[in-house]
Computed example of a mutant assay.
Amino acid sequence: MVGRHHKPEDLTVPHVHEIVRASHAKIEHDRVKLFLCSGETAEILLYGATIISWKAGGEERLFLSEKAALDGSKAVRGGVPLVFPVFGKSSNHPTDKLPQHGFARTSRWEILDTATESEEFINVDFGLGPENLTVDTRKQWPFDFGLIYSVTLTKTSLQTKLLVRNEGQEPWEFNALFHTYLRVPDVTKVAVTGLKGVTYRDKVQGGAEATEESDKLTIASEVDRVYVKVPGTVKVEDIEVGKTLYTVERSNLDDVVVWNPWEKAKTIADFGPEDGYKNMLCVEAGSVSSWQPMEVGSFWEGGVTISI
């Protein structure tokens, strides 16, 4: 069973089984809604612990497909789905029986706690363990684990943090990724910075490796790249007005995935509207270019803060 005692010291707060329904947090049967007095909001489904809305600065900051399934029937297209324990599909690996991107985004999580220290932020924690998985998923990946997923809303940022613990008697390894769909006014007029000189795997080109040569990565066609061992902060800028839209800061997450399906969006059944790709750009912080090993009793933590 996932428990608060599995968190490292800086995250430890007393475990509670019931949540006090403060005025800034609303708990519904399938989701949690967070509110700040200054007007910022976030909405997280229990299904997948998927963040489906983040409103700050008077605007929606996440792209959510108008065809996204929010009833638990399939992974959510948009928002911030959580990838664990495998990125994509694997072969000749213990995760190779799992569906693409693993089971975290398609499992129902438990609410562990909300803790508000001031009017400046609100936090909610979700837990996932073997007892939350289906019988079939346990057969596909039989390891014992505990996950704590923390979402923190502030006036200017959305912070997400994942704690992974090996609670079994044998080692295993995993990938993790925060699959963030950022909303942008016009994808052809934005650029991603902070990637120059970084090696990437170009999935559009069959996984070919290359090195980013541009100070500003712009989008004019389908892009699906895994940037490996990105050294610093990544930003999304509006190059038309010279303004930073988002700053992406990572903790213990070496890799950054940049994805936009372009007109291929028309072939994705749950992507809508068909031209919605013009207003979204996935900038995804993760640990996916290599496997993260987990010895018995060990834990790993990684997180990302997206600021406006």
Rank of each mutant, 00 (worst) to 15 (best):
W141V: 00
H179R: 11
F63W: 14
Q169W: 01
I306S: 03
V248M: 13
A42W: 04
L46F: 15
P94N: 04
S150Q: 13
R183V: 05
N166W: 08
G272Y: 11
V248T: 05
K216F: 03
S221D: 15
K216G: 01
E263M: 08
P130F: 09
G297M: 06
I44Q: 03
P85G: 00
F121W: 09
P142N: 08
L128T: 07
H5P: 02
D125Y: 03
S150A: 12
M294N: 03
V16D: 05
K89F: 05
N166T: 11
G207A: 08
D71T: 08
A220N: 14
V20D: 11
T305E: 04
L34R: 01
P94R: 05
E119L: 15
D224Y: 14
F145Y: 13
T193H: 02
D71M: 06
L34G: 11
T154V: 07
G72I: 06
S107P: 13
C37V: 06
H15C: 09
N279S: 14
E240T: 15
S251Y: 05
K203Y: 12
I308F: 03
A104W: 12
V80P: 09
P142D: 06
H24C: 03
G102N: 01
T154G: 06
Y200C: 03
T211I: 15
S290G: 10
V184H: 05
K264Y: 07
G207W: 15
L245N: 07
K89Y: 02
R61S: 01
V234L: 04
K243A: 11
K189D: 05
V124C: 13
E40F: 01
A42S: 11
Q140H: 07
N166C: 11
S307W: 01
V20G: 05
K278N: 12
F178M: 04
V234C: 13
G48P: 14
N260R: 02
M280T: 09
S53V: 08
E301T: 13
H93L: 11
G79A: 02
R77V: 07
E213I: 04
W172T: 10
G276Q: 08
S307A: 06
L98P: 00
I239K: 07
E110L: 09
T152E: 12
G146Y: 05
Q205P: 04
T95E: 02
E117N: 12
L98H: 04
R250C: 08
Y246C: 06
L112C: 12
A115P: 14
A176M: 14
V76Q: 01
W109V: 15
F299S: 14
F35N: 11
T233N: 10
E131K: 12
V124D: 04
W291S: 08
T233A: 05
G88M: 03
F63N: 01
P142Q: 08
D275L: 06
K55N: 13
A25W: 13
F178E: 00
E222Q: 15
V135I: 12
V192G: 00
V230G: 00
L34M: 13
V226H: 09
V32A: 11
K196G: 04
V124S: 02
H15K: 03
L163S: 13
L11P: 02
V223P: 03
E66V: 04
R183P: 08
E110Q: 15
N252V: 05
